[in-house]
Simulated scan of single mutants.
Amino acid sequence: MITDLTDPGTDAHERIRTAAVLLFARQGYAATSIRDLGRAVNMTNAGIYHHVGSKEALLADLMRVAQQGLNSATERMLATAGGPSDRLALLIGSLTAVHACAPLTTSVMDGELRSLTPGSAARDEIIVLRDAYEAHWKRTLADGVAEGTFRVADQKLTRLALMSMCTGTSEWYRPDGDSTLEQVCAEFVTIGLAAVRAPVQVTTSPDFSLLPDLPWEPPDVQHDPRPDEARR
């Protein structure tokens, strides 16, 4: 983890990506220039381009690594899960935890797909990765409905509502807040199972040690993704 973005003694590749996450999340990809990145890490534009092909390639790389990490962690957790209720509990708990622990990285991952060029190989790759992740949610809800464990009128709306609840933690969760991450995850699981009217109580909880390593998450940052003028 990079703690000083301007320290030339640390890996330039990591410093640039940590700065990109910070700036893309706080002021948006479109409003961030290569010059902004250079100032953040005390490098020239030429120095930045020595390490990244383009600003869009940098964004795609960040999104790809984050989504692949989430996909892999989810697959490891679900590998030993039981029925649909257990699987849904793990999906809710893990997605909540990832967004709470890496609010800036997940903000970029969730919100900047629009910034990738339509029809580009990078954008298509990210969409495939996202679809693979959402397929776990779709299958879990469909299986629960098919076996009568879940009672859901609209599976798509239910999935979107539950996923939005989980990803929202990137906006408000703080480690020093009123609730621990374990408590938040447990409460969200309870809410999620109630939403699908699941009669089965589960004791499954996500193994936080399996969460993806997102090394470019800026440390000790109070996250507010809005531009400065919006916070005044």
Rank of each mutant, 00 (worst) to 15 (best):
I2D: 00
T3R: 14
T3Y: 10
P8Y: 13
I16F: 14
T18D: 11
F24C: 06
F24S: 04
A25W: 04
Q27G: 12
Y29Q: 01
A30F: 00
G38Y: 04
N42W: 01
T44F: 11
A46E: 13
G47D: 10
V52M: 09
K55F: 07
L58K: 06
A60I: 03
N71T: 03
S72Q: 15
T74V: 15
E75V: 13
L78A: 11
T80M: 08
A81G: 11
P84C: 12
S85R: 13
D86T: 11
R87P: 11
A89K: 03
G93Q: 09
A100K: 02
C101F: 00
T105N: 01
T105Q: 10
R114T: 12
P118E: 09
P118F: 04
D124R: 14
L129A: 05
E134L: 15
E134P: 00
K138V: 14
A146K: 08
Q155M: 15
K156G: 00
L160G: 02
L162A: 07
M163R: 12
M163C: 03
S164Q: 13
M165R: 09
T167E: 06
G168Y: 08
G168V: 03
E171N: 04
W172T: 12
P175G: 08
G177S: 15
D178T: 12
D178R: 14
E187P: 00
F188R: 04
T190W: 01
I191N: 07
I191P: 00
V196E: 06
V200N: 07
V200F: 01
Q201K: 13
V202D: 04
S205R: 15
P206D: 08
W216G: 02
W216D: 12
D224H: 10
P225H: 13
D228C: 00
A230V: 02
R231C: 09
R231Q: 15
R231Y: 03
R231E: 02
R232D: 10
